[in-house]
Design a protein around this nucleic acid. Structure first.
Length: 473
DNA sequence: TTTTGAGTTGTTCGA
DNA sequence: GTCGAACAACTCAAA
């Protein structure tokens, strides 16, 4: 049997891996990861560090047989395939705009040499493009998508393709006879390409499994009640693991289903299970939207917004810098932005609050905020990030009603009721007890910077401008 | 084809 | 302090 080449991308695990199973079934396998300069340069330090560690862990998990090369995949993959005489290159499908183009180019080059390119599985429970309305058109509204997505269903982890799909023993994967030598130790290559900094989160298959098991036992029961509370540790933080594929959403959904029928669960747990599954559905929805409309990675879903008067010039630069550095004068916004810079992560509630503030209060283009998030989030995912921003900005799927403008003070008081979260990230406010921390100047703490905009006034202006966009004025 | 129901995550105002 | 109504009109999805 001729060897095949397994090209890892966003599927850095061994368990429940249909592409790996298929490759291994057909003979010797060379496992490859390509450090693509185009992707590395847009990754941001936290994700680069996480990728480095995930690759080291994957290499160890497959008996130090991972072949990592640096370069353009359109050159490197065909070159390696030729070096080992691979008949086929196997991948988990990628549906992003860049990945789709890249894979098409690789597939063409391979075909010219008579080699196959096979896509098996994807990083989603339901492959983007599979869930369609009765008319055969993509969904543009989340709720109907979620219903159809549930009804579509997904394979259980155990039947993802073949007998050997589950818990494949990496030691049993044969290597091709002429395995290309890598020119230097993997750790050095990864550190020189992806940096030496600490990753904000341990991203690898074993950490992902442990993290999910821990959340399932301890976090899920309170999820419905506490998930919006940034002062508590009430979310799963699995985003980064899903982004790199160190755990597959199918695995998570199977464990949720295994909790049993809703009637057997307490109402709290049943509600929490639905809420958590919904978050996965959002991830799949946005991947589906991006798959169907690749231009929305940078352009407005609702093109009427193309004429919205975002601010520009020095004024925009100053407003953006104040937002980015966490000195807007609104404690909950400043706390969130500082957490992002310090931790490479921000609570989802605050992602909405700060995104609303940048786009509605400061009227800076959502794309600029989205870029900043991608530069700093360890879990930064193009589809979820760009569409989450568009949702908040009002330019996206199911455009926000014009009246939905987050009030940063109200949001702070509601979701950080004791003020603990603000004090954790804004040390200069630690002298203020309780929820008063959300309105420092009311308590005579005049040393905290004044709000850079008056929210009530900014809200009125944003609503008026929204009106002009919708009416085409 | 037409009709109908609904749309993650909010805020403000007035009773 | 709490609660319900108002905030518009449109698009989407399904019957």
């Amino acid at each position: 049997m001729s060897p095949s080449l397994l090209w890892f991308r966003r599927d850095l695990r061994v368990a429940d891996h249909p592409a790996l199973a298929m490759a291994a079934e057909n003979g010797p396998v060379l496992a490859v990861f390509v450090l693509d300069p185009t992707l590395v340069s847009t990754s941001g330090r936290p994700r680069a560090s996480a990728l480095r560690d995930a690759l080291l862990a994957l290499d160890e998990a497959i008996g130090h047989r991972l072949c990592v090369v640096r370069g353009d995949p359109a050159t490197e993959i065909p070159r390696l395939a030729e070096a080992i005489g691979a008949g086929t290159v196997v991948v988990s499908a990628d549906h992003g705009p860049y990945g789709t183009r890249r894979d098409a180019a690789v597939e063409r080059t391979l075909a010219e040499a008579g080699r196959g390119f096979v896509r098996v599985g994807s990083p989603y429970a339901v492959t983007p493009g599979r869930v369609l309305t009765a008319n055969g058109t993509p969904y543009k509204v989340f709720t109907p998508f979620r219903r159809a997505w549930y009804e579509h269903g997904w394979p259980a982890p155990a039947d993802t393709g073949s007998e050997s799909a589950e818990w494949l023993d990496p030691a049993e994967i044969a290597l091709p006879e002429h395995r290309p030598d890598t020119d230097r130790p993997l750790r050095d290559l990864l550190r020189s390409t992806l940096g030496t900094g600490d990753s904000p989160l341990e991203v690898c298959e074993s950490a992902a499994s442990a993290q999910w098991a821990d959340f399932l036992e301890h976090g899920l029961p309170g999820y419905a009640d506490d998930r919006d509370r940034p002062d508590l540790d009430a979310t799963s933080r699995l985003g980064a693991q899903l982004k790199f594929g160190t755990i597959h959403p199918r695995t998570i959904l199977a464990d949720l289903a295994a909790l049993g029928p809703t009637t057997g669960l307490g109402t709290g747990l049943a509600e929490s299970r639905d809420a958590f599954a919904s978050e996965l559905a959002w991830r799949e929805f946005y991947a589906d939207v991006l798959h169907h409309y690749p231009s929305t990675a940078g352009g407005n879903v609702d093109v009427r917004w193309d004429r919205f008067p975002w601010v520009s010039g020095d004024h925009a630069d100053e407003a953006f810098a104040a937002w980015r550095d966490g000195r807007t004068g609104y404690p909950i916004v400043d706390a969130g932005m500082r957490q992002l810079l310090a931790e490479g992560w921000m609570h989802n509630r605050l992602r909405m609050v700060v995104a609303s503030f940048l786009t509605k209060d400061l009227r800076v283009h959502w794309r600029r905020g989205a870029r900043h998030f991608m530069d700093h989030l360890v879990d930064g995912d193009l589809a979820s990030n760009q569409h989450g921003w568009q949702w908040t900005a009002g330019t996206g799927t199911d455009a926000a009603p014009y009246f939905r403008v987050f009030n940063p003070v109200t949001q702070g008081k509601r979701f950080d009721p004791e003020g603990d979260y603000v004090r954790r990230w804004v040390p200069e406010l630690r002298g203020i007890a309780g929820a008063a921390v959300h309105t420092p100047r009311e308590g005579g703490h005049g040393d905290y910077p004044a709000p850079i905009v008056d929210h009530a006034e900014a809200r009125r202006e944003a609503l008026a401008l929204y009106d002009s966009v919708i009416r085409g004025a």
